[in-house]
Amino acid sequence: MSEVTGEATGEPAGQGAAQELWGPHPMRHGQALRFELGPMSLHVARLEEEWRLRHTTAREPLREVLGYYDALVGDAVGEPEIEERVAAHDAAELRDLQLQPLLADRLVLARPDVPITVLEGSRVFVFVTTPLWVRLRRAPEGELIAELPSYRPSDSWLGPPSGDGPLCYASRTTARLTLGQLHASPMRATTKIELRNDGSTLRVQRLIVPAPQLRLYRDAGGRFWTDEVTVTRGRDGAFSAVRLDGQPPVEAGAVKLVADAREIGTAHVVLRALGSLFGGA
């Protein structure tokens, strides 16, 4: 991954390393910072009466640029940009801006690069990445300023069009059987899914990542990981169990928890979604 510091004014805003990116950023009135968060370029300006946000998203979901630097209030971030203004009168001259990464707010549907065939009585491990969301808070009080996806995945739907859903996201990147084949991106989290098939041979064309039910971790190298997920398919062909292991995979090594799950782990939500996916499971 590449890092960016001090491009706009020649003055680095901080150390620029990924670790500091997620730390507090002291901001004065009239000060602006530009963040490069993978596919998203985000410009944050702090004014006395409001926070002004402008952001744009690249078409490449795996864009690797990561970092931040000082900017001018009127700087553009590219076309087309979306502007949001958050009214918040704040007399304090200095205020910290806190960035927090977190997982998607809906289930994410991922496709393997080629359909995976899981033989009867066997198990496979699949690695998949999903885009991160960024939560901006005013520290130390913690008021939410905004929550933005670093890359807005396409909407998708589980089940028939006349059904009840649920609405989910479709991951544009492909799932892989080995971690080494997975394209690492600084603004995506890696999920390891274990598929145990006790039923007849299963052909897997799509996978569900229960992002809202997973916790987010970061390893020493700055890579993001989620809890491991285990899916078991019973002898009758129905998905009998989904286990959200509550810990990252061993491949992650030493990690630090950076965000709790958005929703309390309810594996039956995933089971129901799997039922929609494979029809009648």
């Binding site: 549907l109 807005r152 995945p153 396409s154 909407d155 998708s156 739907w157 589980l158 069009p161 479709a170």
Partner: peptide, 8 residues
């Protein structure tokens, strides 16, 4: 277009 559903 992210608002267009991937599925159906």
């Amino acid at each position: 277009d992210p608002r267009v559903l991937d599925e159906p």
